[in-house]
Design a protein around this nucleic acid. Structure first.
Lengths: 138, 138
DNA sequence: TGACAAATAGGAGTTAATCCTATATAGTAT
DNA sequence: ATACTATATAGGATTAACTCCTATTTGTCA
């Protein structure tokens, strides 16, 4: 949670109870929730929070690289709160996105042309796949 | 276009004028269009096509790995028709997604644990960034 | 050429995301 | 502490994105 305060100060985001609750919910979330799923979770702590606030908070967190956004075929937007170095498997059939860990990928070097032009917040390898379950189905 | 026919036969997709038009529009598209942008383009060739058909076609193409789906903070779903090996830069501020090419990334080996469990259709490195323009703004 | 499953258009319906405005509140300076 | 100001919020209204439904059409294969 100190990390949350540090990040907010860095980006001039006020530390409100709503933002704190959203952050806390994300840190506890091991899935890749939709905005609505986050909303449902946060409401337990903070019953009066509005969906709009959750959406705005998620967008601002993602603009500062605190969380990542992901998407798969035929599915809505999802957020990825996992801050450890990790990589993604996206199943194009069921839309499930899973994290996987692979040290070799963690140490990828960003090309210097990119580093000169862009501030890199996050890097990951994304594998577009068909999972075992969906493979069986046809 | 022979490739289109091959792919359709492989996946039991009927070769309809609508599907052909969508495919053609995608192949000519060097951006990362939204479903609606694709719809607007296809209408030039195929004025009576419905948005629903475009959407269904995009989803089925993405389910077979013919195209990829991408997403950035605060933006809608986008499709990526670039079939050459390439990688992505996502600017979290303006939502722009750009392709970049880097041979070292192309030759990444998929971990054997993954290859045993999943059929890998596509692999790419995704760098979450802030672009030069957005960096200047704040 | 006929039969049938698959695909389509178009509209209706649903869900997700955004905008609007009045009110409340965090941070800062006093 | 207190007052001030810009930021953030709730809640409803609006818009946009997406999906579903049904009657009709059309590829494909025998």
């Amino acid at each position: 949670m100190e990390n949350f305060i540090t990040q907010c100060k860095k980006y001039n985001l006020r530390i409100t109870p709503q933002r704190t609750a959203v952050y806390k919910a994300l840190m506890e979330d091991k899935t890749h929730p939709t905005a609505d799923a986050v909303y449902q979770n946060v409401k337990k702590d903070c019953p009066n929070i509005s969906l709009d606030t959750v959406n705005r908070t998620l967008i601002s967190f993602s603009e500062f690289g605190i969380i990542d956004t992901v998407m798969c075929s035929g599915q809505g937007k999802k957020y990825d709160p996992n801050s450890k170095p990790h990589h993604h498997l996206k199943c194009v059939k069921c839309g499930k996105i899973s994290d996987f860990y692979h040290q070799k990928y963690d140490s990828l070097k960003v090309p210097s042309e990119v580093e000169e032009e862009f501030t890199v917040l996050n890097k990951k390898v994304v594998l577009t796949v068909v999972c075992k379950k969906c493979n069986k189905k046809g």
